[in-house]
Design a protein around this nucleic acid. Structure first.
Lengths: 331, 331
DNA sequence: CACCTGTTTGCACCCGGTAGCAAGCAATTT
DNA sequence: AAATTGCTTGCTACCGGGTGCAAACAGGTG
């Protein structure tokens, strides 16, 4: 069992009371330069460092933020996690990464995070329904919660999202301008409101252009594999003449899977035979093999806002931020 | 400020002492069914839950594991993080994800993790040198440290790695069998011992096949971009007849960047003009656009072992596990 | 030198649990 | 009926710090 020095031990060694030691480590506390120096010296020699656990208990603030993630298949999570940890750390907060899965569901995670006294909970792209809270009377006394990169369906829980309406408007404008008139949409999940919203807006903006027929392809989950399967089903059941001329996929992973399948198994060209659009601007989509036209979420701004909410600098109200269209060779 | 019920409050409400309340929440504690039921009922009505912070302080065990990551550019991190969080959570441990970067270096992170009293520190693929510990006298009293997916250069700090020797042997055997005789190697970092080792073994096993000339290409970091640049420099400075017939890239990301560049800018075919091998079996490398031959690290086994070390089930000694060669169309 | 003022310092008590001992109590034994 | 045994329960002490108040101390003034 390891032993660390405590404030009391430092106090004895320095010939002061433990409170003086604590003051030496409390910025702005009332203490003379002289005794502060003395304390810091003996503290250094004893290798003393304040115990943040004890401090958290006493101050009722852990400076820990639980981040719930339930979909590690989406590579987009990684850059977001990087930015999120970096900005939170810069604000003096540390991330507790919680993997929501079959063995550790939302309710477990919520209870656990609460018991650990985290300062806030970030639902990062997790599917979290209102009932989870109401069913378990978890609402009261929970740490403040925030939803990142997905709509919040929960009353009083703000979200930070990319503006889907603007995004889809930009995309549809771009496609229309390029001359496409027979659009299709590939969904990855049929239950998520964020997914539904993208599709809704896609259909809506095509409607405004006078195009009222939008084909819908369903992938089973967000993976290249699933995207490939979805497009295969579509191509197998649709005559070449009836096919869409542009397919918007709900994210880049689906799009990449779709492109591979089209080229590899069907010898189709992108964009000549069918144009493809993705979403998220995942690094590999930008490689020359795919040249995927996509839409980039304003990651840094989103993270900045959510960190602001957590630290209280920003009002905790749902924020919608504009992203930007990334045009490449696939359209 | 949120208020949670405490054991004392539950005790008063239930008409017992706070220790009886605690016992009701301590598995195997000495308490009658009767009073346990009574306590649990009033606890539920008051929405009481033990405060893990206080418990950690008293028991000197936080059940938190700090995981240091300094390279979020490598997509391989994500599946590893998924597996790691899942297995640790299954063992009752929770992950504190720490982003090591310019603003928050190893020393900061180490001190911070120590102050938070974490039970263990996992250096996940981070470049961490011996001196960091010795320079700062951090050795004494630190939580136990483990290195995941990279060699440990630190005395007394065990690592869990994929067997590089076996991997490179399998790869070279495979390439030799396929008839390649002019090999090249692309490194992503020249300072990491893991990187050096792969290259060394690559050269060594070719040597055993009687091939003593291995070209070396250096990418500046691990990104598709850097891989593309490295291969561009090579192609621009090497006559077509002098070129390698197979290029092994230190990981799949470099390989994918290299393939894109070769095909896009130079019209070269893979594997006819130059075969390519990667490392890590990253999902997209398996798409039909790349068909990248690669080597897969035994992720689940590695995580299982490191979790075993952390929980003390497994002896804390460096473990080397065999991965497996994934043959595809790029060779 | 006494007096006043403002800063340091020490202290009792608190944060919410855990450990281990000793008293309380019922059932069993002699 | 008294003694023994074993389970419950309450209590003191403790984990390592933080808060607010009061005592101690300095420095400047009359």
């Amino acid at each position: 069992m390891r032993k660390r020095a405590t404030a009391k031990q430092v106090a004895e060694a320095a010939g002061v009371s433990k409170w003086t030691v604590i003051r030496a480590f409390t910025p702005g506390a009332s203490i003379t330069e002289e005794s502060k120096r003395k304390v810091l010296e003996t503290a250094a020699s004893l290798n003393y460092t304040p115990n943040l656990l004890a401090r958290s208990l006493a101050t009722n603030a852990t400076h820990q933020v639980a981040v719930f993630v339930d979909d590690f298949a989406n590579p987009q999570k990684l850059p977001f996690l990087e930015t999120l940890t970096e900005r939170l750390q810069a604000a003096g907060l540390v991330v507790m990464l919680i993997n929501i899965n079959n063995h550790f569901d939302h309710v477990h995670a919520l209870l656990h995070a609460d018991q650990r006294q985290v300062d806030a909970i970030v639902l990062f792209g997790t599917a979290f329904r209102d009932e989870t809270l109401t069913d378990h009377q978890l609402g009261r006394g929970m740490p403040p919660m925030f939803v990142l990169a997905r709509d919040s369906q929960i009353d009083g829980v703000p979200a930070v999202v990319c503006d889907a309406e603007l995004a889809l408007k930009d995309i549809v404008d771009h496609l229309h301008e390029r001359g496409y008139r027979r659009p299709g949409f590939m969904t990855g999940a049929t239950v998520l409101s964020t997914a539904l919203r993208r599709r809704q807006h896609f259909v809506e903006f095509w409607g405004k252009k006078g195009v009222h027929d939008v084909a819908v392809l369903s992938a089973e989950k967000y993976s290249a594999q699933a995207g490939a399967e979805a497009v295969r089903r579509y191509l197998n059941t649709t005559n070449a003449t009836d096919r869409v001329d542009v397919l918007m996929c709900e994210n880049d992973i689906l799009a990449i899977g779709a492109i591979d399948e089209m080229r590899g198994k069907y010898g189709l060209r992108v964009p000549e035979d069918m144009a493809i659009v993705g979403f998220d601007n995942y690094e590999l989509g930008g490689s020359s093999a795919y040249g995927l036209t996509t839409y980039e979420q304003p990651r840094h701004e989103m993270v900045e806002v959510i960190v602001g909410m957590i630290t209280g600098r920003v009002d905790a109200e749902t924020v919608t931020l504009p992203g930007k269209l990334v045009m490449r060779s696939s359209t």
